[in-house]
Design a protein around this nucleic acid. Sequence first.
DNA 1: CGGAATTGTAAAATTCTTGTAAACAACTCT
DNA 2: AGAGTTGTTTACAAGAATTTTACAATTCCG
Lengths: 224, 224
Amino acid sequence: MQTVLVIDDDSALRDTIALMLEKEGFRPALAADGKSGLKQALTLKPDLILVDLKMPVLSGMEVCKQVRAAEMKTPMIVLSAIGDEFDKVLLLEIGADDYVVKPFGTRELLARIRALLRRSSSEETKVVAFGEVEVDLTRRVVLKKGEDLKLTRAEYNLLTYFLQNPDRPLTRDMILNSVWGYESFPNTRTVDAHVVRLRQKLEADPNAPRHFLTVHGVGYRFLP
Amino acid sequence: MQTVLVIDDDSALRDTIALMLEKEGFRPALAADGKSGLKQALTLKPDLILVDLKMPVLSGMEVCKQVRAAEMKTPMIVLSAIGDEFDKVLLLEIGADDYVVKPFGTRELLARIRALLRRSSSEETKVVAFGEVEVDLTRRVVLKKGEDLKLTRAEYNLLTYFLQNPDRPLTRDMILNSVWGYESFPNTRTVDAHVVRLRQKLEADPNAPRHFLTVHGVGYRFLP
DNA sequence: CGGAATTGTAAAATTCTTGTAAACAACTCT
DNA sequence: AGAGTTGTTTACAAGAATTTTACAATTCCG
């Protein structure tokens, strides 16, 4: 579950937002002023920060600045009242990612939150490569020589397990437990069958595997 | 030209506003009570709605609520008389975007209208397209080959979820949680049923889907 | 080298998953 | 209340994936 830190001195608004967040599956964290908000931002490491622009002690602007000064990349949305004068450009320059003008609909705020979370999370696309194969873990796509390769669920799961445990011998039982789980008890030969198919699909020469090696009497070993 | 729907039981005020709107280059649409106003809001799909708070039959509050319940994001400004008691937070919570207290100058109202239109158009007018389909997120309108397509609420919600998460496998559980929310627990097969309908309505060839793909053993993937 | 154990592999057998229509339930609007 | 929508569940056929099986090929080690 993702944590959203709400920093606002208006307790009514704070609670409204918190309620909405909870209802939508987020974990809200609340702070009534900039100072404590900043402290929570640094210790709690929330997934997103909502911060009011006008606050006593430490303004939203200051909070943004300091969060960024701490090398945190947490996405931040600034809330500003309709009368507030504020410079969008400056706001974004110091590190805010978006701003919403009060009064706003909760629906809009939520949309912004979701959009921002998606934007900042999708930036970390993990792509692992070995031989002539590329594996995109976020998109669950496997490419061989740039060509889209179709893997079944079991094949894909087995592949990711190998990727996570490179260069070490893995017994069939270990593989079964990790990939198939403790609930199902297939024959250990099942593993072999799937390894064969992975080799056929991913190896340049399936008859002389260079990545999915067998360790005779033990199991298999993956070599990137 | 942008259409502004004015819902107010005071005919004098209605006409004044209509006149002003016309002069300023908007197309006014008028409704004398909440019920007919709501109907017009849903059928006419105006660019902005001005709605009086106190009205016979259906209050402005109710109108706001129902417009939002229909998943329309049309910006709404609530007009309230100076004596009216009203809860700002509640108002905004149910979906209003701004409010103006009567008596107000036409100049002020116009400024609010412009500001709101600017805000919601510059940041929310998103038309996403894929294949021969266009989706206008602000108006909640879906076109296929330029023709208006009728999607039910669930269908539309599912579609927007897909649009927001392109090119990545989405499990039925993820879809249920995001589109249906945590409160309802429909069968996961419900997702399939709706995907089928989306394919039937949106795919050029529903039997060979090119956008709503199934990822066997995992779920679905939307490809723009 | 020879034989037992282990592994590779295709194909059969089985189990799962999905598409789809139709029944059913819930909700809206009149 | 009832007609019409919309949403959900169910049932079953079709298809895909997984597991098992059988046998060939390979490896190991005395």
